[in-house]
Deep mutational scan, measured.
Amino acid sequence: MTEYKLVVVGAGGVGKSALTIQLIQNHFVDEYDPTIEDSYRKQVVIDGETCLLDILDTAGQEEYSAMRDQYMRTGEGFLCVFAINNTKSFEDIHHYREQIKRVKDSEDVPMVLVGNKCDLPSRTVDTKQAQDLARSYGIPFIETSAKTRQGVDDAFYTLVREIRKHKEKMSKDGKKKKKKSKTKCVIM
């Protein structure tokens, strides 16, 4: 069974824990209790493949930012979460993405942009803004509501699919490099 290491990042209060708990335990946590770091595991079937999701729910508070490099190193894919009623959390996505790329030393890291709290009427981040940002990053965008469960499975499952595509691409690139290195030079 394939294991996928997913990391949920975003500013404090955007609903990272609520999304994760909704996926794992099928219930909505409405009281806000700032996370330092929590880890969850769940076995699911995605596109006919049974897999184990190892999900790291991270601290959004700035005082825990020193811990970010460590979990970013171990993560295979990242859910970059903002709240649709919090423009600052949307603007912060850029910083999370840049930090992930720096730590992973790669421009090509599996990510999904997630606009959470889409059940709320007080939207300050337009869907088109988020779609445009995701398009500019070359990553999928999904709106979710941890409260109603809308888009929750889709967000995590899409990230797994992005990781699969990335692994497939990397193995193809690896095979191309191996083929090239088999060419021999004969000096007579």
Rank of each mutant, 00 (worst) to 15 (best):
M72C: 14
E31A: 02
T2K: 10
T74I: 15
T20N: 14
V125N: 10
G115K: 02
Q22R: 03
G15Q: 08
Q150R: 08
Y71V: 15
S39A: 12
F78S: 02
H95L: 07
I84C: 13
E49K: 11
T127L: 08
C118K: 11
S39P: 00
G77D: 03
K182W: 03
G48A: 09
C80S: 04
F156E: 08
G15N: 05
I84L: 13
V9E: 03
L56S: 01
D126R: 07
A155Y: 01
R41I: 04
I139C: 14
T35S: 00
C118S: 11
C51K: 02
R161P: 14
R135K: 14
L120C: 13
P34K: 00
A134D: 02
L23H: 15
H166F: 09
F141C: 10
D105C: 04
E63L: 02
D92A: 10
Y96C: 06
H27P: 00
R123D: 13
D132K: 10
L133R: 06
T127R: 08
D30A: 07
V9K: 00
P34G: 00
T2N: 12
E168F: 04
Q25M: 14
G151F: 04
T20L: 13
G151V: 09
V186L: 12
Q131L: 09
P140L: 06
R164E: 04
A59F: 15
G75C: 13
R123G: 13
V44L: 02
C80M: 13
L6G: 03
M67E: 00
G12C: 14
I93N: 08
Q25L: 07
E98Q: 03
K178Q: 15
Q25G: 07
T74L: 15
K128C: 09
D108F: 10
S136E: 15
D38H: 01
T158M: 12
C80A: 06
V186I: 13
G15K: 03
R135Q: 11
E3C: 03
G75T: 04
S17K: 00
L6A: 07
I139F: 06
F82Q: 02
V112I: 11
E107D: 13
D57Y: 00
D119I: 01
Y4V: 10
T50H: 03
K101M: 12
K172I: 11
D154I: 07
T50S: 07
K182Q: 14
R97W: 15
Y32V: 00
F82V: 05
L23E: 15
E62Q: 06
D30Y: 06
Q70I: 00
K117L: 15
L79S: 02
C51L: 04
T124H: 10
D54R: 00
D30T: 09
Q61V: 14
K117R: 13
G75E: 04
L23V: 04
S17D: 00
L159H: 13
Y157P: 05
D47Q: 05
Q131D: 11
S65A: 06
V152W: 04
K182N: 05
I163S: 01
E31G: 02
Q22F: 02
K42D: 02
K172Y: 14
D69C: 02
M67L: 04
K165L: 13
Y71G: 14
V7A: 07
K16H: 01
S181R: 13
R123H: 11
Q22W: 02
E31P: 01
Y32Q: 00
K101W: 07
V125T: 10
G12M: 04
M72Y: 15
L56D: 03
S17V: 05
M188P: 15
L23Q: 13
T50E: 01
I84M: 14
V160A: 07
T74S: 13
V81F: 15
K117H: 14
K178P: 14
T20P: 02
K176R: 06
G151N: 13
A155I: 06
I46F: 04
S17M: 01
Q61G: 15
Y137A: 07
Q61E: 15
E3R: 02
P121E: 14
E31V: 03
S65F: 04
V14H: 13
Y137L: 13
A130F: 12
T127M: 08
R68C: 15
I100T: 06
Q129P: 13
T20Q: 15
F78A: 01
T74Q: 15
F156W: 05
V114D: 04
E76H: 04
L159A: 08
S136L: 12
L6H: 02
A59H: 15
Y96L: 15
G12F: 06
L56W: 10
Q61S: 13
R135E: 12
R164A: 01
E3V: 04
E49G: 09
E37Q: 03
G151D: 09
D154R: 08
L52G: 04
F156H: 15
F156T: 12
V44W: 13
Y64T: 15
D57Q: 00
G15T: 03
K172H: 07
Y4R: 06
D69N: 04
Y32G: 00
A155D: 03
K178S: 07
S39V: 06
K104L: 14
R164W: 05
E107I: 11
G12L: 03
L133P: 06
V112G: 02
K5A: 11
Y157I: 09
D54H: 02
H95P: 05
Q61K: 01
S106G: 12
K176M: 11
K117M: 15
D38E: 05
A134S: 12
V114F: 05
K172S: 14
R123S: 13
Y157F: 09
A130P: 12
S65H: 10
K104G: 07
G77M: 13
I142T: 04
V7E: 04
K88E: 15
D57W: 00
V114G: 01
R123E: 12
V14K: 12
A155C: 12
E49A: 08
E63M: 01
A155H: 01
M188Y: 14
A18T: 05
Q99R: 06
Q25I: 03
R135T: 11
M67A: 00
Q25E: 07
H95Y: 10
S65Q: 06
Y32L: 01
E31F: 03
K176V: 10
D47E: 06
V7H: 14
N86S: 08
R123I: 09
E31W: 07
G75D: 01
D69W: 01
Q131W: 11
